[in-house]
Write a protein that binds this DNA or RNA. Sequence first.
RNA 1: GUGAGUGUAGCUCAACGGCAGAGCUCUGGUUUGUGGUACCAGUGGUUGCGGGUUCAAAUCCCGUCGCUCACCCCA
Length: 422
Amino acid sequence: MKKAKFQKPTGMHDIIFGDQRYFRSIINIAENIFNYYGFSRIDTPLLEDEDLFLKGVGEATDISEKEMYTLKTKGGDRLALRPEGTASVVRSYIEQGMANRPQPVKLYYVGPFFRYERPQAGRYRQFWQFGLESLGDASPVIDAQVINVLYAILMDLKLKNISIEINSIGDKECRNSYKKMLVKYLKSKSSSLCSDCKRRTKDNPLRFFDCKDPKCQAVKAEAPKIIDNLCEDCHAHFKQTLEYLDELELPYQINPCLVRGLDYYTKTVFEFFVTTKEEKSLALGGGGRYDYLVKLLGGKETPAIGAAFGIERIMQAMKDINLVDGFKPKDRVFLAQIGSLAKSKSLVLMESLRKAKIPVVESLGKDSLKIQMAKASRIGSKFIIIIGQKEAIENLAIIKNMETGRQETVPLDQVVAKIKKG
RNA sequence: GUGAGUGUAGCUCAACGGCAGAGCUCUGGUUUGUGGUACCAGUGGUUGCGGGUUCAAAUCCCGUCGCUCACCCCA
């Protein structure tokens, strides 16, 4: 039956071959670092109660208003594909009684996330993130550790030109009084604002700082900054955090205009950037403290901080500086054969090679030795094992060193030992 | 959700109203069992899909879907 060609859904992509090398490396390196610093992996469902995200992310954010993939189950529940990781982790923290474990509870996650948006450079409807959360400790040293862990991952990935922007957006107290001050200021400058920012003044005044319209830049420069209006507690927290970062010699800079898109953040917020070859700044990820979220979602009052990185963004950054060579697969032995008896011996020999943890490549379907050798050359195999018709009958194999061209014939049961010796 | 651009072989692209092509890849061959080169041959397309204009459409027009870019926002 002829059918229309299938294609992947809008904004979603396959990760195959070369991209898988980047993808797996990023996840492996991130997981090694997370484990080293004592974070345990958590895997939560891809679907959650829609209200969890509405409440968690904030109902007035873009994510809630237009970016959620929601669905109704046969039983009538309203579920949503997760647009971010923190709400699910917090839900699990509360539901699994993690408050009864030693605090802070340190968790990390890796997986796909979903946002219904128009795709664009580095932006997908299904994208991958890894992230970490540290719940149950309010001290600024945790803030510094989270930032340091993320930085360590980027360093292990050999990325260059990383910068960290950091800011504090205060807590309930100081942010509310600051917001009033900002709104008052924005209203006084209303005539020189772009139309978006006029709207923002009402809906979400902090978002004003995200505006890129040249009209608003002068107003932005002179606007009162939250960082100058923090309460005593928030100020001390921020100062201490920065001191820890100084000790770690992390390349951060304070950006008084940094506010984040999700409602749940308090105090420390930060974003990681990489500067590309074309001198463009690419956002890799970010995060911040969210001291009210656990209570908001039904738990006890619990301070917490978390952050996430976009894996596709990191891949983009790695490709930008051609890091691919560092992630090529290791030398593999090539197993060549001629004839059906040799194929049969090859199948058995591969089992011995696997048990000895020797990686092997074959072209079992082929008969031409020339073609098999050409392939071995192309993938850069150091050794090729050849079992021809004659060798198969006598239980022998030829081991040839592809670099020196030297070869010797050995009994089949000694092949593994010879290869291991090199 | 708004605006602009763009879809031709697995990939990069050509043909721009008149027979749908090239390079790379892939498969095989260059005497029978030994190497990334070279040479030769072959596979692969209802030109994203649907309609319209025309003697004739990959090409012009309309719609639709995908992709890209910008906005909104973010990873």
